[in-house]
Structure formats: C-alpha cells, structure tokens
Computed example of a mutant assay.
Amino acid sequence: MSGQDIPYYLRPNKHVERQIFIEILSHVNAWNKLIEYLYVSMGGKFLEDIKQIHSALNIKKLVSIERDKITFERQQFNRPLSLIDCLNMTSGDLVNQIGTLLDSKGANNCIVRLCRR
C-alpha cells in the first residue's frame, strides 16, 4: 500500500500542510482578490485540495493535472464540482501550456501547487 491509498483524514501532516497553505493564501487574498486567479494542482484521485481551496477562497477557475491514466479516470468519476477541469498531463506539459491554459480560463494570474500526495 502506498501513501496515496491512505484516506486523507488519516494523514494529519498532509492536512496541516494544506491548512497552512490555505491560510497563507487567505492573507494574500486580503490584497489580491484570488477569486480571479486560476488554481492548478495535482489533485489526486479525490481532488481534496481543490475542494478545500474552492471552499476557503471561492476560487472558481480550478484545474487538476494528472499523468497517471487510471488516476485521471478516477478524477473524472470522483469530480465533486463541475468547476474542476481534470487534465491528463504532466507537470512538464503544464509548464509548456500554462499560457494557453490561462487564456482558456480567462485568468491573468495563477496559483500552481505541485505537491504530490
């Protein structure tokens, strides 16, 4: 069993890390309205961080990237919000296509979090 198969709520360090990240973003939100930003993440099969970012900051331009085909298909099935676009791509692909992605989402800025499970 790998770490990615352990339920999120049983991984307190991951939860704390994510909460700190959201708190930092909430402070940035006081000066820059992040609702206009694109949020890109390696969401994993349950898209937990994307759900929390949307809930805490009301960001609506949400993208999850995943290179593993099975996990990508799982994301499609588990997608909790229709706002989330799941893309089957690598982080390298993201770097090459970030401009196009920003244009397609109508965003000028983005938050990219490339932390793996």
Rank of each mutant, 00 (worst) to 15 (best):
K33E: 13
Y37A: 08
I20R: 02
Q4Y: 13
E36R: 08
E23Q: 11
L94T: 10
H54Q: 10
G106I: 05
C115G: 09
R79L: 03
T90Y: 06
E73W: 01
A30S: 07
Y37T: 02
L87P: 01
F77R: 11
W31Y: 15
Q97R: 14
V112E: 02
D93F: 07
K69R: 13
L34I: 09
D93Q: 15
I24G: 04
V40C: 07
K61C: 02
D5N: 14
N58G: 03
I98F: 10
G99C: 04
L34T: 05
S26G: 05
G99F: 05
I53M: 08
I111F: 08
E73V: 00
D49P: 02
A56H: 12
K51H: 05
I70F: 07
N13P: 00
L102E: 01
E23V: 00
S2Q: 08
N58D: 13
F77N: 07
W31D: 06
I35S: 14
I53L: 03
E48W: 10
L94Y: 09
N96Y: 12
S41R: 01
N58P: 00
E73A: 12
I6K: 08
G3R: 06
S41K: 01
L25A: 05
N109H: 14
L101G: 01
H15G: 01
L102M: 09
N96M: 12
E48Q: 13
R18F: 00
G43P: 08
N13I: 06
H15Q: 10
N96S: 14
Y8Q: 01
N108K: 13
A107G: 01
G92P: 01
L101S: 04
L83P: 01
E23D: 13
F21D: 07
R117Q: 08
N96D: 15
A30Y: 02
I50V: 11
G3V: 02
L102F: 04
S41P: 06
C115K: 11
R117F: 12
I70G: 00
E73N: 11
W31C: 05
I50Y: 03
I22P: 00
N78I: 04
L10G: 01
I35C: 03
V16D: 01
R67A: 12
H27L: 10
P7M: 02
N108L: 09
E48V: 13
R11C: 07
F72P: 05
I35Q: 08
L94E: 14
Q19P: 00
I98T: 06
I59V: 14
E48K: 14
W31M: 02
M42T: 15
H15P: 00
V112G: 01
N58K: 13
D85M: 05
R67M: 11
G106C: 06
C115A: 14
M42R: 08
T71F: 07
N96L: 15
F46Y: 15
F46S: 12
V16S: 06
L38D: 02
L47A: 04
S104K: 11
I70V: 15
C86N: 14
V28W: 07
T71I: 15
E66Y: 06
L81Y: 12
